[in-house]
């Protein structure tokens, strides 16, 4: 899948939606709940369910980064599945909240 910066993806098995902030260095498969995510505008495939070992959930506003590939995504809608890249779980970044300045 082409994970371009700014491209939007949704989970095939839960409510999770993400936006790509930084693309991976090479082609990779972004998954949620253990299944490849689908383009935001596309239809969800039927008959899939969340894999147990990918069910930790996502939270809106969190950023997720995979050091190995450089991929960074932002969760724009939370859900019950958790994110992985080529089967490897990717974790939430600890972002320090800054005071509003504008």
């Amino acid at each position: 899948m082409e994970l371009k910066p700014g491209s939007r993806w949704k989970s095939a098995v839960c409510d999770t939606e993400v936006v790509v902030v930084r693309p991976p260095k090479s082609d990779a498969s972004l998954e949620c709940g253990g299944h490849p995510m689908v383009a935001h505008a596309a239809a969800k495939p039927d008959g899939l369910s969340i894999a147990l070992d990918h069910s930790a959930g996502t939270q809106m506003g969190k950023r997720f980064a995979d050091e190995e590939s450089g991929l960074e995504v932002l969760c724009s809608k939370g859900g019950a599945g958790s994110l992985s890249l080529d089967g490897r779980a990717i974790s939430a970044k600890d972002a320090k909240k800054l005071p509003a300045s504008d």
């Binding site: 700014g6 902030v21 809106m60 506003g61 950023r63 932002l74 724009s76 972002a95 909240k97 800054l98 509003a100 300045s101």
Partner: peptide
């Protein structure tokens, strides 16, 4: 601009 916004503000925070 998007880099500034995303790195300094929490989405719907």
């Amino acid at each position: 601009l998007t880099s500034y916004v995303i790195s300094t503000v929490e989405f719907l925070g």
